[in-house]
Design a protein around this nucleic acid. Structure first.
Lengths: 208, 208
DNA sequence: CGGCCATTTGACGCCTTTCAAAAGGTGTGG
DNA sequence: CCACACCTTTTGAAAGGCGTCAAATGGCCG
């Protein structure tokens, strides 16, 4: 249970942490850097999401986790979780499902950056964030994006300049409305159609 | 233990299979289709790889598996594996590690298609395939690619035409040599450098 | 040998990047 | 409360990487 300032790293690629964490408040991002220094974000974490549970089973972290805004995380010693896993099998199943759902999202991101143009790509990311935020009861149709356009660029494999142009285009097309970083979706079906979005890849439970 | 013809599907997106399979011979690919019909491959499977074990824990498959060439797979009823998992904890850990290594590869693919240009992207894919093939003792520096240029394109988010140009460029640069689909790597370090390749994301065991 | 598919090559166009700079916002210190 | 510094957003112009279109070549199998 510790406050984490904006931009602080929770895990760095190559770490072998002896504790894992859950995001309680704020937003975080999973990312990697290429040797040239460019960054690729491969997931945004919302409150309630585990941040680095794969470290429970893999030797070293293959990605970094950085806070996107100031937030709060809960840390648990890996020993504690492992002994819990030893006692309660259903907990292991739950973690397993979460990790594999994360993996499914990563696969969808491969599709997103590999086969969708900038417009669909951004719309798809917005859809994912909206659906996940709704599932966490964060808010509904209007949605405060805590991310800068540079972060959105690194998440979609685009440049911040182009993100800006795409957001403007989506706005003039009526698919979204913006004021500051607040984004409203007046026509959800419209955005979903633009994005080619099918939320099954999120593997969310209906009513758990 | 069944032979599978080229292009046959092992799993389709949305399936809820009651058996899972391991690739014994040949090559397979994991893929998704967008609503426009374009395809994105997100993993190539080599002999020895489990093809769809995530179905053990998730409700429905979020990707399809298709044979890239005629090959052989072994099918196991999910019930059988689950009861095995119940008895032998170390088996569960092994499967867990495999699944999470797959997830790590998917994340690296996000980086690949998101932040590397065509030349690095293709080189990175070749590096991954070579390292994994070597680990399976398939062959060493020379490597028969069973994949068409169209498949390589769908794996890298490019077009087959551009794959062709990149392969030619890598050839004239001396990074690879080709005859037919056989690819030789005369200078491994060279290709690795071009690719910005660091094999840690594969999470392979040193000597298991 | 003929049909079909994969590979190869060229010309052209466009989506996205790069480069550059202005404008808007925000926090800190005087 | 203002001023300054810094970051983010916005806009424009030009370049380039990759896609699209089209067609020729090559290889495999019946």
């Amino acid at each position: 249970m510790a406050e984490r300032p904006k931009l602080s790293y929770v895990v760095r690629e190559g770490d072998r942490p002896n504790e894992v964490s859950v995001l309680l408040a704020g937003f975080a991002q999973r990312q990697k850097h290429t040797s040239e220094g460019t960054r690729q974000i491969m997931a945004f974490s919302l409150p309630g999401d585990p941040l680095d549970f794969e470290c429970l089973f893999l030797d070293e972290a293959d990605f970094s986790v950085q806070m996107a805004v100031t937030g709060m995380i809960a840390c648990v010693r890996t020993e504690a979780i492992k002994s819990l896993l030893h006692d309660r099998r259903e907990l292991g199943q739950a973690i397993e499902r979460t990790l594999l759902a994360d993996a499914s999202v990563a696969r969808e991101w491969v599709v997103n950056v590999g086969r969708r143009d900038a417009r669909r790509r951004v719309a798809h990311l917005l859809c994912e964030l909206l659906v996940r935020a709704k599932a966490q009861q964060i808010e509904t149709s209007l949605f405060e994006l805590p991310f800068t356009q540079e972060q959105l660029a690194d998440a979609t494999g685009l440049t911040p300049i182009h993100i800006n142009r795409i957001l403007r285009q989506l706005t003039t097309d009526g698919a979204i409305r913006r004021s500051g970083r607040m984004i409203t979706v007046p026509d959800w079906e419209r955005l979903r159609e633009i994005a080619d979005f099918d939320e099954r890849f999120l593997h969310m439970k209906r009513a758990s």
